[in-house]
Simulated assay, not measured.
Amino acid sequence: AQFAEPAQAVAALLKHLKAQRREEVGELLRASMEDYAPSDVPLEDFFQRGRYECEAARAADVPPWVLDALSRGQLPPFVCDALVLRSTFLRVQVENMQRPSAHSAALPLRQVIYGLLLGAPRNTGAAAPGQPSCELPVVCEYDRLQKTLKKNYVPAASLPLDFCDDHFSLDTLAEVPVLRRQTLLLETLGMKASFLESVPSHLQLPVAVTCHWIRCSEPQVQLHQLKALLLTMVSGELQRGTADLDPAALPAEDDSAADNEFLKWTEKKPQKEDFDVDAAHGFCQWQCCLQMGLYLNQLLCAPLPEPDLSSRLYSGTLVHRLHQELQSAPAVENLSSLSPKLTQLYQVLLNTVES
């Protein structure tokens, strides 16, 4: 509806409320309108042209390709915070507060991101006797220590010798050959490209992130956690309609049976005593690793395909239900009676992360 002035819009809104609430809500709305100051940001630029540029970003001496990616939403605010402010805020999830922050598992990934953004010197080994070592750039991270906000100064990682020459800078990162960018991404995640050859392309990054999670998680990842996570990824293939392992669509009967089984696990009511806070902490760590793996992939101009970040890749409800089921009924992971193709995909993922 179109209104000539704000007062008409407020009056029209109040008609939908109960009579006894109209006066109170009307006063709150009018008070809020008096406090509101319209932004001078021309948001129509973003919605009409798919990008928005602000003066502050241009004044920050950000490389043009980074500025363009930020304006299009192709790079996260985390990158801008680290690059311009040299400060980042790590959000807390539903974690075990007695353990170190879930973000600790992704620290090596963040350090490589900082190294790329801030131009950390190359890793040439130990400095020669009598020569000063190069100081690494530092980023201030706001994280938690138990239930308290804590400030940590994190040094950037040195870039490997075979990634770039002596004159590398963020300005030319997009010009680095894609194979080198992919190698840096996979080496940071502790994965070799050859191990991912049998994995569908849209799952290669999540699988590589999972390998990093297994290596860096504290406490150690349990097998039930890993299997529950991989089964959740497999369940997402039902939503895609086809699996990369076979260009043909899943047979309707297989699709329906498997989908119903995953739906049954999702809707199963948990018992209060079934909640495993350490398992939840582990899955939080995986999400932190996935987040930084995605950011690193985006900063490297996507040498690996971006995964689908909807519930097709991860569902907290489903992964916790599967984790509980696997502890009491290990046969849950046997999908062969439901869908041979999903069983094959699950085995490919499991073999890859266990290799």
Score class of each variant (00 low, 15 high):
residue 238 L to K: 08
residue 353 V to S: 03
residue 237 E to M: 09
residue 197 E to G: 03
residue 188 T to P: 02
residue 226 L to I: 07
residue 38 P to T: 07
residue 146 Q to R: 15
residue 340 P to K: 04
residue 332 V to F: 03
residue 334 N to M: 02
residue 120 A to Q: 04
residue 79 V to Y: 02
residue 279 A to K: 08
residue 37 A to H: 13
residue 305 P to T: 07
residue 86 R to H: 14
residue 176 V to E: 05
residue 286 W to E: 14
residue 269 K to C: 06
residue 268 K to I: 06
residue 138 V to P: 01
residue 19 A to R: 15
residue 334 N to D: 15
residue 196 L to V: 08
residue 277 V to Q: 13
residue 192 K to F: 03
residue 192 K to V: 06
residue 352 T to C: 12
residue 124 T to R: 04
residue 40 D to G: 12
residue 57 A to G: 10
residue 131 Q to T: 13
residue 75 L to V: 07
residue 268 K to R: 15
residue 161 L to I: 00
residue 302 A to R: 14
residue 54 C to M: 08
residue 8 Q to T: 09
residue 238 L to H: 06
residue 342 L to E: 04
residue 277 V to A: 12
residue 135 E to W: 00
residue 245 L to I: 15
residue 148 T to R: 15
residue 312 R to C: 11
residue 163 F to N: 01
residue 177 P to H: 02
residue 348 V to S: 01
residue 207 V to H: 03
residue 206 P to T: 09
residue 125 G to R: 00
residue 108 P to A: 07
residue 34 E to W: 04
residue 206 P to R: 07
residue 53 E to N: 09
residue 278 D to F: 09
residue 12 A to I: 06
residue 40 D to R: 10
residue 269 K to G: 01
residue 228 A to N: 11
residue 105 A to V: 06
residue 309 L to P: 03
residue 56 A to Y: 10
residue 156 A to Q: 04
residue 93 Q to W: 12
residue 21 R to Y: 07
residue 16 H to D: 13
residue 342 L to N: 03
residue 135 E to I: 01
residue 298 Q to P: 02
residue 4 A to M: 11
residue 194 S to W: 05
residue 300 L to G: 06
residue 215 R to E: 11
residue 276 D to P: 09
residue 119 G to W: 00
residue 99 R to S: 06
residue 39 S to G: 14
residue 253 E to K: 14
residue 295 Y to R: 05
residue 41 V to Q: 08
residue 138 V to A: 00
residue 282 G to T: 03
residue 216 C to P: 00
residue 249 A to T: 11
residue 326 L to F: 05
residue 137 P to V: 03
residue 76 P to A: 14
residue 345 L to I: 08
residue 355 S to P: 02
residue 74 Q to Y: 04
residue 334 N to Q: 12
residue 182 Q to S: 10
residue 20 Q to A: 11
residue 207 V to G: 01
residue 87 S to A: 10
residue 291 Q to S: 12
residue 271 Q to V: 09
residue 284 C to D: 13
residue 109 L to E: 00
residue 32 S to A: 15
residue 169 S to L: 02
residue 254 D to W: 14
residue 107 L to H: 00
residue 208 A to T: 03
residue 240 R to Y: 10
residue 134 C to H: 05
residue 240 R to W: 10
residue 170 L to M: 11
residue 240 R to C: 08
